[in-house]
Simulated assay, not measured.
Amino acid sequence: MKKLIITGAANGIGRATVERAIQLGYFVIGADKDAEGLETLQSRYGADVFEAQSADFSEMATIKGFIPSLYERHATIYGLVNNAGIYHGKSVYAYSDEQIDEILNVNLKALVYLSKDFAEREMQHEAPRSIVNIASVAGEVGSCDALYGATKAAVIGLTKANAWNFAPFVRVNAVSPALIHDTAIYDTIPDYRRAEYARQEVLKDPILPSAVAEVILLLVGDALRHLTGRVIPVDNGAYPR
């Protein structure tokens, strides 16, 4: 049974990805600071297919120690989905210094450390491995939340660079969602911005976390084994490019 790490596992896209991965036969290591959400998943799926890891990726000690601690118990792990993220939906002027540090840690620094620590260990096996980062259309076309947009643009750059850094054994790709319904972020997006997303979509079926999860797991698995350094949009065609 292949093992897969999913951060931000307790809710939204992360939770949907956990559920889809287990359906596909993965053993999932789910990390989140939402202990209650993790407990719900653990109770539903059991220790045979799911391991809950309480982790707050706004803390540098957690970021730096997370992967090393996993490898004290797991000899090898097949894939990493860097999904944990923060979105405030507010002006750059409204950010405190603490909030700037927090969003940089969760949305970018965590990906830097988790990815390199994972790849460093798995490249030694000289076998196919996969990392999928969750970017955003905000990283491509901008965001009313400048810090969110900046970090997601950095995720895209990191994805492309690490595809080179970790080749030939660890593939690195990104999923770039647009307006995803039924998530915590959806409720914090300003109304005018939600309306703008909806206006530009050429497909009108609302995008749900489960749809993003399907794309993530395609990138993780062998079906797209020839793709690396790619950013795959899940946006109902809102931004043709």
Rank of each mutant, 00 (worst) to 15 (best):
residue 3 K to W: 03
residue 6 I to H: 05
residue 6 I to N: 06
residue 7 T to G: 03
residue 15 R to S: 12
residue 16 A to K: 11
residue 18 V to M: 14
residue 22 I to Q: 06
residue 22 I to M: 12
residue 24 L to E: 14
residue 29 I to R: 06
residue 29 I to A: 07
residue 29 I to E: 08
residue 33 K to C: 05
residue 38 L to Y: 05
residue 38 L to P: 09
residue 41 L to Y: 11
residue 42 Q to P: 02
residue 45 Y to S: 13
residue 48 D to Q: 13
residue 57 F to D: 10
residue 59 E to A: 08
residue 60 M to P: 01
residue 60 M to F: 08
residue 62 T to N: 11
residue 65 G to P: 06
residue 68 P to S: 12
residue 70 L to Y: 08
residue 76 T to G: 02
residue 78 Y to D: 11
residue 78 Y to Q: 07
residue 83 N to K: 07
residue 84 A to P: 02
residue 92 V to A: 14
residue 92 V to M: 14
residue 93 Y to L: 15
residue 93 Y to M: 09
residue 95 Y to T: 02
residue 98 E to H: 13
residue 100 I to F: 15
residue 101 D to I: 05
residue 101 D to K: 12
residue 101 D to M: 00
residue 102 E to F: 07
residue 105 N to C: 14
residue 107 N to H: 13
residue 109 K to Q: 05
residue 109 K to R: 15
residue 110 A to P: 01
residue 111 L to P: 00
residue 115 S to Y: 11
residue 116 K to H: 11
residue 121 R to D: 02
residue 124 Q to H: 08
residue 129 R to M: 02
residue 131 I to E: 03
residue 132 V to Y: 03
residue 133 N to Q: 02
residue 136 S to K: 01
residue 136 S to W: 11
residue 139 G to T: 05
residue 140 E to L: 14
residue 141 V to L: 12
residue 143 S to R: 01
residue 145 D to W: 05
residue 146 A to M: 12
residue 147 L to W: 04
residue 149 G to H: 03
residue 151 T to D: 03
residue 157 G to I: 04
residue 164 W to P: 00
residue 165 N to V: 05
residue 167 A to V: 06
residue 168 P to F: 03
residue 170 V to L: 09
residue 172 V to H: 04
residue 176 S to C: 14
residue 179 L to I: 11
residue 179 L to N: 06
residue 180 I to P: 10
residue 184 A to L: 12
residue 185 I to W: 03
residue 186 Y to P: 03
residue 187 D to P: 06
residue 188 T to Q: 15
residue 188 T to R: 15
residue 193 R to N: 05
residue 196 E to F: 14
residue 196 E to P: 04
residue 198 A to M: 14
residue 198 A to I: 15
residue 202 V to N: 07
residue 207 I to N: 03
residue 209 P to K: 07
residue 209 P to S: 03
residue 214 E to Y: 02
residue 214 E to H: 03
residue 223 A to V: 14
residue 224 L to Q: 09
residue 224 L to N: 04
residue 231 V to P: 02
residue 233 P to S: 15
residue 234 V to H: 10
residue 238 A to D: 09
residue 238 A to P: 08
residue 240 P to L: 15
